[in-house]
Simulated scan of single mutants.
Amino acid sequence: MRTERRTPLNRARVLDAGIALADTEGVDALTMRRLGGTLGVEAMALYNHVANKEDLFDGMLDRVAEEITLPDVDLPWRDYARARAVSAHTTLMRHRWAAAMWTARISLGPARMRYMDGALRSLREAGFPAGLLDLTYHAIENHIVGHALQAQGFPLEAAEMTAMGEGFLRTFPTDRYPDLAAHIRHHLDHPTGDDFEFGLDLILDGLERMRAVT
């Protein structure tokens, strides 16, 4: 009788299983017992690879950070910042639980430290003075994470938004609020748009002008 060999459990497998569970069912569904069940082990076996649930979350977040593509270090600061921001935003949108955790968890793993250090180095080498450098870094990061949180927090899917919006406009006092009505109509007629990159470019253009006069 052959015994099926089980893939050995390790930290990477535990973290990846946690990410998969959070992606499909939400981070609130992630318990050590549930995670152990998906891996075919008792919850206590997980503690050989993660110290506790906080360590699990920190490790999961750093695994997500590993998915962010860091641009070539020789790129001009604006190109570096833009490519990094687009990749980071795409990653946070792929893992919809991660944006809120990105700002809430202050324990940094190696992948997040590389991500942050690369951004700060690029700005320093571009000649940003210390004060403006700090403001620049946070302005870009706030746009990445804030936009993801807003996009993920919107309660309606595209089809639901269309149906709700059309019904809303039929009873909306357009004569009193014509510009708001036009705004809603625009969203219904143009349901897609790359507003993240539009806002990002505005921020980067403004920061470049500030850098040039300092």
Score class of each variant (00 low, 15 high):
residue 29 A to N: 11
residue 23 D to Y: 03
residue 44 M to F: 09
residue 110 P to A: 11
residue 102 W to L: 05
residue 187 H to T: 13
residue 214 T to Y: 04
residue 89 H to Y: 06
residue 125 E to C: 08
residue 106 I to W: 08
residue 19 I to W: 13
residue 90 T to G: 10
residue 162 T to Q: 15
residue 162 T to S: 12
residue 125 E to N: 08
residue 55 D to A: 14
residue 167 G to V: 06
residue 124 R to V: 15
residue 27 V to K: 05
residue 183 H to Q: 11
residue 194 D to I: 07
residue 102 W to V: 04
residue 69 T to C: 04
residue 157 E to K: 09
residue 46 L to C: 12
residue 26 G to M: 05
residue 70 L to M: 12
residue 103 T to N: 12
residue 166 E to V: 10
residue 79 D to A: 13
residue 42 E to F: 07
residue 32 M to P: 05
residue 127 G to M: 03
residue 211 R to H: 02
residue 159 A to W: 09
residue 176 R to W: 03
residue 91 T to W: 10
residue 14 V to P: 06
residue 35 L to M: 03
residue 169 L to Y: 09
residue 77 W to V: 03
residue 133 L to P: 00
residue 135 L to M: 15
residue 140 I to K: 02
residue 212 A to K: 00
residue 81 A to M: 14
residue 80 Y to V: 03
residue 183 H to L: 09
residue 124 R to S: 13
residue 137 Y to Q: 08
residue 64 V to I: 15
residue 58 D to G: 12
residue 19 I to S: 07
residue 65 A to Q: 14
residue 146 G to S: 02
residue 140 I to N: 03
residue 128 F to S: 02
residue 150 Q to F: 10
residue 2 R to V: 14
residue 54 E to I: 15
residue 53 K to M: 10
residue 116 M to E: 14
residue 91 T to E: 00
residue 53 K to F: 05
residue 79 D to M: 02
residue 19 I to G: 08
residue 123 L to W: 03
residue 23 D to F: 07
residue 142 N to A: 04
residue 159 A to M: 13
residue 49 H to Y: 15
residue 103 T to Q: 11
residue 31 T to A: 04
residue 103 T to M: 12
residue 92 L to K: 11
residue 153 G to T: 09
residue 100 A to M: 07
residue 22 A to H: 03
residue 152 Q to C: 10
residue 38 T to C: 11
residue 119 A to D: 03
residue 141 E to R: 05
residue 201 D to N: 07
residue 140 I to L: 02
residue 57 F to S: 10
residue 29 A to H: 09
residue 60 M to W: 01
